[in-house]
Design a protein around this nucleic acid. Structure first.
Lengths: 342, 342
DNA sequence: CTGAAAGCGCTTACAG
DNA sequence: CTGAAAGCGCTTACAG
């Protein structure tokens, strides 16, 4: 069965292919009568324009890409371990879909790879999730394609659209909550205070809350780990038990980390929230699944994805012309992993 | 900055565009000398072929699609609730990537939508995740595009490639495990025994194990729910407590359901595995996160995704020409949610 | 072994 | 208001 093309439609409607294209794209005025004939032909022949051909001639693919950091040579492991990406991607997918765009996902190791991908597939825009080298951003700039960055604080980042979250306030809320519950020895668990600006911001909030309450900053209560995985949470949980007996409250930069910590604590016979009160960050779907369920700083990740998607599409369709950064609110969700200090 | 095209390369190498195409595609023999010149030009000019153009002329997009059932008009909610999809998609993504294919994801409501998508994007192949109407499969057949179905048992399904899991054995293993632990009153929690062939198969395994042990089948111990969500698990958990005092073992068709049930049980003051032993199905990443961690029937979902991906790509590249169905093994993973009956 | 030319399915100045 | 023609960037019989 041969594919129905614009020529077939043209023939059926007794007009030129150009005219069919005109009515389909709403460009140029076409008389009502011919318009009707064309539309009818489209209907009868069950015609659907070929996006590949459109891409080629319009230089526009109606395709956006989401770039993820590449782990183990595949984004697979990223997805498996980080439910955050999952929800975010869903968000952008859903707005893209509504606005007639398709979305592709790729892990990106180096700048070249990214550039090639954009060129190869003629992507109309890009969303970057995670941290990448400045070199990559330079490449991006050269590519001159609408781009939105997520959760970045670096200065060179202002050359792009940006969506982030009120990280400092998040760290503050979490810490304040524990303080209000009477905790005085509160730990902070992050990935890296030097290489992760997001974590640094949250740490600022933590310090601020401590300070407001007249509590000192104890460097021994700061734990850093490589990346956000359950296993790393486990390790930190162990460390916490063996390491410091005065700690009763723990602020964390991620739900998954918090869940790992809780698990380790429980394995060592500790009670959460009996012995330790813990607050997560993100409010992933699964933060409800655990026992105890997780008190956490909620960011609406799906909404974040939607916002990023809309920003990108606006930029692609030249609706927004200026770079902007939108900061999304953050909210404390109190569940079972925190309680008054004994 | 203008895009580098095949013409530029041709000019630089002092050959025709056709020749460039020949060496890039390894088709026809080209003299070593010209080949070298072309490759050098490609290198120097930093040339990357435009897939859009290739798609158009080769009628091959190097793009595969993963179709998900559409909930609430967007695949987003599907992803949010069902970690299974997540891992599966990662699996196919990773093999596609290695084989130079990109993958797109779409929710599909009706057959027309699916057909349009395939046409629009010139997809080379399709993977279907979830249940769809027979009508859709008819459309698919008409489309005549390589397709692999996941977890289907319907008869008309044999017209496609298929990857599934040894569901019956899974149900059997789970049940047998509980029986071996001394449980006699074992419930079975499914979505639907009539509309879900997968659940029916697992149920077969359940019955077989019961029978082997000389235990009768008690219809009161069978619970059905609409779909696999944490909330539905919660509901069933409540029902279990109020409903039947003799029950001590529970076999489930999904980890998420099991986790919901455990949560509800715990909320009502019951112990898991003290009062109830529960076994899940899937072995999602999160089945380790919960307390107690979940005893479950493991299927390697990522591997399943990879298998599906390879099957599809083999079929696209005419490596495999016959339809085949591969059945993946299943394995009991014993963790903390089950124990000897008191 | 190499190239001219037609074609993939659409769009878009340009002319009328 | 409508259409002929060139073009998007590649591929592929076909001829030589």
């Amino acid at each position: 069965m041969k594919k129905t093309t614009i020529k077939d439609v043209a023939k059926y409607a007794e007009v030129s292919p150009a005219t069919v294209s005109y009515v389909l794209n709403g460009v140029k005025k076409v008389s009502d009568d011919t318009k009707r004939r064309v539309l009818e032909a489209v209907e009868v022949l069950n015609y659907y324009p070929d996006f590949t051909a459109i891409s080629l001639s319009k230089k526009k693919s109606n395709l956006i890409g989401i770039m993820l950091p590449l782990v183990e040579d595949s984004p697979a492991s990223v997805f498996k371990n980080n439910l955050y990406y999952n929800e975010f991607v869903s968000g952008v997918e859903s707005v893209a879909r509504n606005r007639k765009f398709d979305t592709m996902i790729a892990g990106v190791g180096n700048p070249e790879e990214c550039r090639n991908w954009v060129k190869k597939r003629n992507l109309d825009g890009l969303i970057f999730l995670g941290m990448f080298s400045q070199h990559l951003y330079n490449e991006l700039k050269a590519l001159n394609i609408p781009t939105v960055l997520i959760d970045t604080y670096e200065e060179y980042t202002n050359l792009f659209d940006n969506v982030k979250v009120n990280d400092e306030h998040g760290g503050y809320l979490a810490t304040k909550h524990l303080i209000d519950l009477g905790h005085k020895d509160i730990g902070f668990v992050a990935t890296s205070l030097i290489s992760s600006p997001v974590d640094t911001k949250r740490f600022e909030g933590y310090k601020k809350a401590l300070q407001e309450a007249g509590l000192g900053l104890d460097k021994k209560l700061i734990f850093e780990t490589k990346d956000i995985t359950f296993d790393n949470g486990l390790k930190i949980g162990k460390k916490i038990v063996s390491y410091n007996r005065k700690l009763t409250g723990i602020v964390t930069v991620s739900d998954v980390l918090a869940i790992g910590i809780i698990k380790a604590l429980q394995k060592q016979g500790k009670q959460v929230p009996g012995d330790y009160s813990i607050v997560g960050f993100d409010d992933l779907t699964i933060s409800n699944y655990t026992t105890p369920s997780l008190t956490t700083v909620r960011q609406d990740i799906i909404e974040k994805g939607k916002t990023a998607g809309n920003l990108l599409l606006n930029s692609i369709e030249s609706i927004d012309t200026e770079h902007q950064t939108v900061e999304m609110p953050v909210e404390l969700i109190i569940r079972e992993s925190t309680q008054k200090r004994n």
